[in-house]
Amino acid sequence: MRLRYGMNPHQTPATWEPVEAGTAPLRVISGLPSYVNLLDAIGGWQLVHEAALAFDRPAAASFKHVSPAGAAVAGPIDPAMAAAYRLSPSGVGALTGAYARARDADPKSSYGDFVAVSHPVDLELADFLRGVVSDGIIAPGFEPGVVAALAAKKSGRFLILEANPSFTPPPVEVREVYGLRLTQPVDAGLPALSGDLLLGAVITRYTQSNSVVYVRDGMALGVGAGQQSRIDCTALAGAKVDTWWLRRHPSVPTPSPDRLHDRVNAQLAAAAAVPDPASWLARLDGVAFVSDGALPFADNVAEARRHGVSSIAEPGGSTRSAEIAAECRRRGVELIQTGRRLFRH
């Protein structure tokens, strides 16, 4: 089947086909996908499907460039989210709420995202998506009237994909790169974690390495992806956490522009100008932190603690794992060394 183009627009023709004839993880309902659209859709669907099964709640992810900008399970909509997205905190459906929570982790990066949700799209979510800038969606189904409402986005170019929840992937992954064929077993199973640490592990599994994720109350607050240095990754994601928390400062006014991205930008500008930000940032606590690879130095613990982290899950097994454990004890941070790496490339 034809793709709009490959990784880049000049890479044509490009195609896709199921590995096994008659069995595919998704089907195209509307639009023409590109190579990256499919990578985002596949990664996003696996993340939300896995999270929904783990938590028995609807889950959503906002994907950009093959990594989640944010991900969340259904939960409460706080006043800052309600103001940015013009939602009623007490009257939002679970699926719409899950996506609003996912997009709110890093709304600037989610501009033009690919949406993934774990449950069939209802009219409420479709109406919400009509007001956001995104490229497409993958879901396991669509209620009556939803496809027609979404297909009109982007002058008919909005991509709508239907996931197959019963699809089981082949046990071996195959990738051909520069004349080489690479094979490996599918990465299945998760570390023995619970709560926000478990959600963080699900998110890191589908984030380009090196990756770390900060999670609180069932939603990502900051995702660091694709960094060669883990401390840079920890600091980058931590800066997103700070921005998320500063948007909740009492001095940040309710944004008034009509368009969503203008309201978000107004909120971000106000957050950057809050008085005495250090004292407000010091009030954030109860954040979980998950690293896809072993923390190589104790500076990662110190940096994570600066952003409200009270629990850390990482594989352990590095030459300095004892130092990591000692630093966590010194700073009052719970540490779980899982023995399982979650690299994704």
Rank of each mutant, 00 (worst) to 15 (best):
N8L: 15
S34W: 09
V36S: 11
G44Y: 03
G44K: 01
Q46E: 15
L47R: 00
L47M: 02
H49T: 06
H65A: 14
A71L: 03
V73A: 01
P76I: 04
A82L: 10
A82M: 08
R101I: 00
A102C: 06
P107E: 07
K108P: 00
K108W: 06
G112A: 11
D113F: 08
F114S: 07
A126I: 13
L129G: 00
V147D: 05
L150E: 02
L150N: 01
I160E: 00
L161W: 05
E162S: 08
P169H: 02
E173A: 13
V174D: 01
R175M: 12
V177E: 13
G179V: 00
A188E: 14
P191M: 06
P191V: 10
A192L: 10
S194P: 09
Y206W: 12
R230N: 13
D232M: 13
C233M: 13
A237Y: 02
H249V: 10
P250F: 03
P255Y: 06
R259K: 13
V264D: 07
Q267I: 04
Q267V: 02
A272Q: 12
A278Q: 14
D285R: 15
F289G: 07
P296H: 09
F297K: 09
E303K: 01
S310L: 05
G316I: 09
S318K: 07
R329I: 08
G332T: 04
L342W: 04
H345E: 14
